[in-house]
Design a protein around this nucleic acid. Structure first.
Lengths: 194, 194, 194, 194
DNA sequence: AATGAATGAGGATTCATTCAT
DNA sequence: GATGAATGAATCCTCATTCAT
């Protein structure tokens, strides 16, 4: 009984497993075998579906970025004011589904992957560009021409918070992380409109 | 050609080569053989002096952190005012000898190493603690009890700038990076003493 | 060509090859590669099936001991009298399938392996215990309470004959070896029942 | 200050260290470096004196055999009767200086070495021949033409006792070992002269 | 669709040995 | 006499990847 439509299920399972595996090891030094086993299939099948390790990694990146993007979008839906938009964007970076040890470690390693694999660099660049343009769009009404620079700084700060969290054993605290970034943004807003 | 007292020379060459190699590959996926060859010796000798790959990595980390620490200290020497102190600390992070593609890639990978190797985590933790305490000490006269929080944010921002630079092919611009961080700090200082 | 159920075939081939290789070299200093090549496969496959060199050695030991045990058991089947039992046990030690240069060298090296690998020591200890209890059981009706001591001596003598044979280039002579041990046992029996 | 006459001291130290090292590891898998360190010198010096690992091993064998030979000879001195001769020979095999875990492991490994290194085989063959002729000479007055066969059996028994001792963690018991062999010889003597 | 079988390539590590001082 | 320096060779082991079923 050839199971139809297995492909998307298998792919999803592998992507999921990849992130867990990277999270568990903290490294890209995970074997296709381990990923496949965690996903409940043979490594041969993993290759069958993805063609190779690199593409499995890329799929995992795409998945992570997609989830993140969806979080941002859905957080923006109810946002009415510019300020709420900004808060929505920052908040989405620290959703409890994104700001998890697993995912944090994965992000870190995606940056490493981007040093080697062009596709990975492209994905991260797109992520950064989106984040930036989202922030600029939300900030412009509030701080005008300062928006681009502040957006860059905000993005860097977010990434920095992630990076530092990767060192700590403590379970990540989304609220505190969000506040840390928003506190900075408050400053910028105060200056623009005292 | 064998001389006495080769050990420190060889060790230094290996550490140097390790950073270059990591920088060139953007990954910890470098072979001891490649490192040794770059350092002009056999891989066996590398093992002889360091005992293993992990310890070579750790030595490279220590070296990088030491250089950075020295830069901070020597930048602090001529600093008279608190503001100059802060500027010195931030500036040292973006010295042209630290803020180089090589070293940036190395830092990124040290964070990855720290996920696995306890010694590496320890080193990075110490680095963060020093940076933080340096900043707090310099900031306290300027912003009082806000110093710790601002120090954390500043540190995260610095790391974030590094992280983002790792994605860009463009040669790093120390001035711009420094300004990015100092602009933020200006805000904090303005608020404290308008 | 890949078929199913290759595992037992491969494992058997490797075990066989291991004994031959140890026999040919007279040492445990044989490479997994050489064993695998002799068994007609890649060394990677050998690792795949056994997990490591040590476990290959242990499997070879187990195989040798199993063969020997089977020889003893089947020799005991037709034995009617106690004397025949004793002769069966001793004879099995010098079967032409056991008392072969290959196997003799292997035994010697198993003793060496047992110095290092607990599992190997366990196997040899079990072998010795079985041989001893077999002998005691067969000897008791003939020599009574002397059986244990005589069994020990007999076992030592058998091992000694093996050890000495390992030094000689001449092809082993099962008959002579058997006689050497049985002659000693005759003495013991005579004394008990003159 | 070039120390004169260092050579014999160094060589002795190395030989001593070799036996200890083999005893400690239970294997010939000991490194020249470890031997040299135990002997308090550099491995280069070990090579200087012996030329290579194999020759170090051979020297250790020679030393062991020489000690044993000396023990036999000195035990024979006070022996008056043939029976005392026999007892002296057997006893010397189980002197507390020979029948030690160290030395027992070394013997076992010498047999392994003999499979590969002709010189080692020669040494062991000489040892066996001497033991045999010593025994025959002592036994002939007691059992006549049976002496050669009994000598062989005795020698095998001695070696077997050694071999079995190598498996046991318990500290070797010279008395018991000696008795085990002498008990056998008593039998032979009884038969010859009831 | 799925997998066991199989391998080639590569890498860390160890070690005997040599050499210049 | 003695050693630190240095290396080539060898070996175990891992893993991504392929293939036939």
């Amino acid at each position: 009984m050839p199971k139809l439509g297995m492909e998307p299920i298998r792919r999803a399972a592998l992507v999921e497993a990849t992130i867990h595996e990277i999270g568990a090891h903290g490294t890209l030094d995970v074997t296709v075998g381990a990923i496949a086993k965690r996903a409940g299939m043979s490594s041969a099948l993993a290759h069958h579906y993805f063609g190779g390790k690199e593409q499995i990694f890329l799929a995992a990146m795409r998945h992570t970025l997609t989830l993140y993007g969806a979080d941002v979008r859905s957080a923006l839906v109810p946002a009415q004011t510019s300020l709420e938009r900004v808060e929505a964007i920052v908040g989405a970076s620290f959703t409890s589904s994104n700001f998890r040890p697993d995912v944090i470690a994965a992000w870190l390693n995606f940056y490493v992957l981007a040093q080697t694999v062009p596709g990975a660099k492209r994905l991260l660049t797109v992520y950064q560009a989106r984040l930036r343009s989202n922030l600029i769009y939300a900030l412009r009404p509030l701080i005008g021409s300062n928006a681009p620079e502040v957006a860059s700084r905000t993005a860097a700060l977010i990434d920095g918070v992630y990076l530092r969290q990767s060192l700590v054993k403590a379970v990540p605290d989304p609220c505190q992380a969000t506040r840390q970034v928003l506190n900075y943004l408050d400053l910028e807003l105060e200056r623009a409109a005292p």
